[in-house]
């Protein structure tokens, strides 16, 4: 089995994705820290268990914590938290899909197969973004 040739140096797609994967990783840390702090401030410390707190941290919307029977104040139904959720979706989905591409392409030496895989991953990326945004925007402001 042969692996793909190593990427070339310079301002290439591979370099930009290398940079993006690190920036989005830090971005997800930021989203998580802001989210968990805000959830605790809004009363999660006394009203939520650990699993619900974590779901709340990344995606504070009514569909995501509906089964938990939480009765927090509705401070999270705002544009700010929709933007935070949107950041988590865009960073998370793109980070994950690029990671998948990275792993798969490492094992594909054929250029044509790599292109097919890349197209499939772009389609998956669009599908996940669409699905996640329909869930995130379920709360009406």
């Amino acid at each position: 089995m042969q692996s793909r040739p190593a990427p070339q140096p310079g301002l290439t797609f591979e370099y930009l994705m290398w940079l993006f994967i690190r920036i989005s990783g830090l971005g997800l840390y930021l989203v998580a820290l802001v989210g968990v702090t805000a959830a605790l401030v809004m009363g999660a410390r006394t009203q939520l268990d650990m699993g619900t707190l974590i779901r709340w941290t990344f995606f504070p919307n009514s569909g995501h914590v509906a089964n938990a029977g939480v009765d927090l104040e509705l401070g999270w139904v705002s544009l700010l938290w929709q933007i935070m959720q949107g950041m988590a979706v865009v960073f998370g989905v793109t980070h994950g899909m690029n990671g998948l591409r990275n792993i798969l392409e490492d094992f594909i030496s054929n250029k044509g197969t790599r292109l097919v895989v890349r197209v499939i991953i772009i389609l998956l990326w669009i599908l996940f973004l669409y699905a996640a945004f329909t869930l995130v925007l379920s709360d009406t402001l």
Partner: peptide, 14 residues
């Protein structure tokens, strides 16, 4: 993570 989160998103969205 891609498999868990991906299944979770797709299942709940559709």
């Amino acid at each position: 993570i891609v498999v868990f989160v991906g299944l979770h998103i797709l299942a709940n969205a559709f």
